[in-house]
Write a protein that binds this DNA or RNA. Structure first.
Length: 503
RNA sequence: GAGCCAUUAGCUCAGUCGGUAGAGCACCUGACUCUUAAUCAGGGUGUCCGGCGUUCGAGUCGCCGAUGGCUCACCA
């Protein structure tokens, strides 16, 4: 039942498809037309599958010689004249199918001529083990479930081109099995977090992604437009201010797992949209949030990876609590050998920065300079999970002051592999103090800092009704998943990373 | 936003000094009833990312542009 394909026929089929085609697609379109001519629907409907590939492989001793129905995508074909081997790929893996002319008959065997790698096939038959020991299904009946018109990448090298992998993730998922593993791990991580928080009595909520005033972080927002109201709106840059409104409203333990958007550069660690987890707990403070961070991430690591220790790039990370802990001043003293407890004012701090070769903004304050020292000299050293506490007030406009030192806040960040993974504090619930902090931000904004906060009167009004003392925590989910999947780039843990439009 | 690098067949990649565009896989034809990157024989299917330029002649050299990667900047 083989057919010579003339150049004319290929050309005709290329016209059929209208779009970009090539020789290989022309061949497949011809097969498609032949199938239809024979009364076979190349894009079939329901199929009663009884087993996944891995069900059969794991339960071979029970299933040998029993009848199964499997379905999947043809990934390899090895023809032997009157017998053919196929590798069928389903959600769970691959299994070999053995099609023998004697068994299926002429008509079914002829179907093979019209099949291609990439087609979806349903197979009914008996489970058996080949002489070479491969668990296989001896086909009695094959049913074409869906025809594939585009050729898949090569069976051995797969799809390597990074651009194509990101733009056409569907192909990446078909041919690179470890890609699916990564996203399964991502899914398990997120469901593990949900389970952990739900068990502690936290309520998952959803707050607006389009906001009149974007707040909760220092970042430039995306602007969008609502036609009906004819107003510009902002895509959210954080979840914080709406979740705290819910704390005011008496929802004592809330969390949101959601997408945020920041209009900034892209890198191996940054995608314009990414997933944040934010958690707020009434009557808690930042020390409670430290415990929650350690316990939750260690628990999820144990669940998802089977261990609290795992390899990331060149490091063996250990999430076992408790994590190392240092104040920011202690960390700078240790790694930069500059003691900010001994620095009296801004001028002295500026001199220390100059001496250390650290570039700072003109008239930078002591707290800002401390943070510069930390970012330039300390962060890269924090490979194992480390909790850095007591952040300067200048860079923490939403955090409570330390009772014994109003220049610092009850805040911490967790660092892993030199990267910020979590950010948390005792939430500022004094509406008068919060108003002053916003005003300082508004002044910075007027001075040209377009990442500074805007005044949010409604948020202040909420605080004026009274907010209980509250601990808040934010965790970058993409970065966490990068660690859990040993991914070098954030784009490897986002199914469809942001890409420029191709002309 | 800046610097460096990359872009050649459906996929993975070669391509020398500027001189007719190559391989493997895939695909097509034929053989083959336990193969597994099946094997054997035959067949090359192309907008060399795009444009302009230099040259008798450009995949190759120059300039401009597109997209991607890495580094830096910004940031989480």
């Amino acid at each position: 039942m083989t057919s010579d394909i003339t150049p004319n026929e290929i050309e005709a089929n290329q016209e059929l498809s209208a779009e970009e085609t090539n020789h290989l697609m022309g061949v497949r379109l011809k097969k498609l037309a032949d199938l239809q001519k024979d009364g076979i629907n190349p894009f079939g409907g329901h199929y009663d599958r009884t087993h996944y590939s891995q069900d059969i492989i794991k339960n071979i001793e029970k299933l040998e010689e029993s009848e199964v129905a499997i379905a999947g995508r043809i990934m390899l074909v090895r023809g032997h004249g009157k017998a053919t081997f196929l590798s069928l790929q389903d959600d769970a893996g691959r299994i070999q199918v053995y099609v023998k002319l004697d068994v299926v008959g002429e008509e079914q065997y002829a179907l093979l001529d019209k099949l291609d790698i990439g087609d979806f096939l349903g197979v009914k038959g008996q489970v058996f083990i080949t002489h070479r020991g491969e668990i296989s299904v001896r086909a009695n009946q094959m049913l074409l479930l869906s025809k594939s018109l585009r050729p898949l990448p090569e069976k051995w090298h797969g799809l390597k081109d990074i651009e194509t992998r990101y733009r056409q993730r569907y192909v990446d998922l078909i041919v690179n099995p470890q890609v699916k593993d990564t996203f399964v791990t991502r899914s398990k991580t997120i469901s593990g977090i949900r389970r952990y928080l739900d068990n502690l009595g936290f309520l998952e909520v959803e707050t607006p992604t389009m906001q009149p005033i974007p707040g909760g972080a220092a970042a430039r927002p995306f602007i969008t437009h609502h036609n009906a109201q004819d107003i510009d709106m902002y895509m959210r840059i954080a979840l914080e201010l709406y979740l705290k409104r819910l704390i005011v409203g008496g929802m004592e333990r809330v969390y949101e797992l959601g997408r945020v958007f920041r209009n900034e550069g892209m890198s191996i660690k940054h995608n314009p949209e990414f997933t944040m987890l934010e958690i707020y707990q009434s009557y808690a403070d930042y020390n409670d949030m430290i415990k929650l961070t350690e316990e939750m991430l260690a628990t999820v690591a144990q669940e998802v990876l089977g261990s609290m220790q795992f390899t990331y790039q060149d490091a063996l990370l250990d999430f076992t609590p408790p994590w190392q802990r240092m104040t920011m001043i202690e960390a700078v003293r240790k790694y930069a050998e500059v003691d900010f407890d001994q620095i009296k004012d801004d001028t002295e701090a500026q001199k220390a920065a100059a001496a250390a070769g650290i570039t700072i903004e003109k008239n930078a304050s002591k707290g800002q300079i401390l943070n510069c020292f930390f970012e330039e000299k300390v962060e890269a050293n924090l490979i194992q999970p480390t909790i850095i506490t007591d952040y300067p007030i200048e860079i923490s406009p939403l955090a409570k002051k330390l009772p014994n030192n109003p220049n610092f806040t009850a805040r911490f960040e967790a660092f892993v592999y030199g990267r910020e993974l979590a950010n948390a504090f005792s939430e500022l619930n004094d509406p008068l103090d919060q108003r002053e902090r916003f005003q300082a931000q508004v002044d910075k904004r007027a001075a040209g800092d377009d990442e500074a906060h805007m005044m949010d009167e409604d948020f202040l009004r909420a605080l004026e009704y009274g907010m209980p003392p509250t601990g808040g925590l934010g965790i970058g989910i993409d970065r966490l998943v990068m660690f859990f999947t040993n991914s070098a780039s954030i784009r490897d843990v986002i199914l469809f990373p942001t890409m420029k439009q191709k002309e």
